[in-house]
Lab assay of single mutants.
Amino acid sequence: GLTEEQKQEIREAFDLFDTDGSGTIDAKELKVAMRALGFEPKKEEIKKMISEIDKDGSGTIDFEEFLTMMTA
């Protein structure tokens, strides 16, 4: 499992990506986040990433899903 410290770091990354503070990361926010990390993702790639992570089919990534992605 994760230490509380690791969870906190992932939470901070999540909050950075969640620019509108909605508690979820949408495609637009993910794209901005990827760019910040030096990637140039295409729209299809973003969609694919979200569909792989987005277990509940909401079209957005919540913290639990993000946590799973970061620790996979």
Rank of each mutant, 00 (worst) to 15 (best):
G1M: 10
G1W: 13
G1D: 07
G1N: 08
G1A: 09
G1Y: 10
G1V: 11
G1R: 12
L2S: 03
L2V: 06
L2Q: 03
L2T: 04
L2G: 03
L2A: 04
T3Y: 04
E4H: 10
E5V: 09
Q6N: 05
K7M: 11
K7C: 11
K7Y: 12
K7D: 02
K7G: 03
Q8P: 01
Q8V: 07
E9H: 15
E9Q: 11
E9I: 13
I10Q: 02
I10R: 02
I10G: 01
I10V: 05
I10A: 07
R11L: 03
R11F: 04
R11A: 02
E12Y: 13
E12K: 15
E12S: 13
A13G: 02
A13N: 02
A13V: 14
A13D: 01
A13Q: 08
F14V: 00
F14Q: 00
F14L: 01
D15H: 09
D15S: 11
D15G: 05
L16F: 11
L16C: 13
L16N: 06
L16I: 07
L16T: 06
F17R: 03
F17W: 09
F17G: 12
D18M: 04
D18E: 01
D18R: 07
T19P: 05
T19V: 08
T19M: 10
T19A: 08
T19K: 11
D20F: 05
D20A: 03
D20K: 04
G21A: 06
G21Y: 05
G21P: 01
S22F: 03
S22V: 03
S22P: 01
G23S: 03
G23V: 01
I25N: 00
I25V: 03
I25Y: 01
I25G: 00
D26I: 02
A27C: 10
A27T: 11
A27Q: 05
A27V: 14
A27W: 12
A27F: 12
K28A: 11
K28H: 11
K28E: 13
E29C: 15
E29R: 09
E29K: 12
E29D: 14
L30C: 05
L30Y: 02
L30I: 09
K31L: 15
K31C: 15
K31G: 11
V32H: 15
V32C: 15
V32Q: 14
V32A: 15
A33Y: 06
A33E: 00
A33N: 01
A33S: 01
A33V: 14
A33W: 12
A33L: 15
M34K: 00
M34H: 01
R35C: 13
R35S: 07
A36D: 02
A36V: 13
A36F: 13
L37R: 04
L37D: 01
G38M: 03
G38E: 01
G38Y: 02
G38Q: 02
F39C: 13
F39I: 07
F39K: 03
F39P: 01
F39T: 02
E40D: 14
E40Q: 11
E40L: 08
E40V: 11
P41M: 15
P41I: 15
K42S: 15
K42D: 14
K42E: 14
K42P: 07
K43R: 07
K43F: 13
K43E: 15
K43C: 15
K43W: 14
E44Y: 05
E45V: 13
E45C: 15
E45S: 09
I46L: 11
I46C: 11
I46G: 02
I46Q: 02
K47M: 14
K48W: 07
K48N: 07
M49K: 04
M49Q: 03
I50V: 07
I50K: 01
I50M: 13
I50G: 03
S51E: 13
S51Q: 12
S51C: 11
E52Y: 14
E52N: 11
E52V: 12
E52D: 10
E52C: 15
E52R: 13
E52G: 08
E52W: 15
I53Y: 15
I53E: 03
I53M: 12
D54T: 12
D54V: 12
D54F: 11
K55V: 09
K55S: 08
K55G: 06
K55H: 08
D56H: 09
D56C: 10
D56S: 11
G57M: 10
G57E: 10
G57K: 06
G57A: 07
G57R: 06
S58T: 10
S58P: 03
G59M: 08
G59T: 05
T60G: 06
T60M: 08
T60C: 08
I61P: 00
I61W: 04
D62K: 09
D62E: 05
D62V: 04
F63S: 01
F63R: 01
F63H: 01
E64R: 07
E64T: 09
E64K: 06
E65Y: 10
E65C: 12
E65K: 13
F66G: 00
F66E: 00
F66P: 00
F66K: 00
L67C: 04
T68R: 12
T68M: 12
T68W: 15
T68N: 11
M69N: 01
M69R: 04
M70H: 02
M70I: 10
T71F: 11
T71Y: 08
A72V: 08
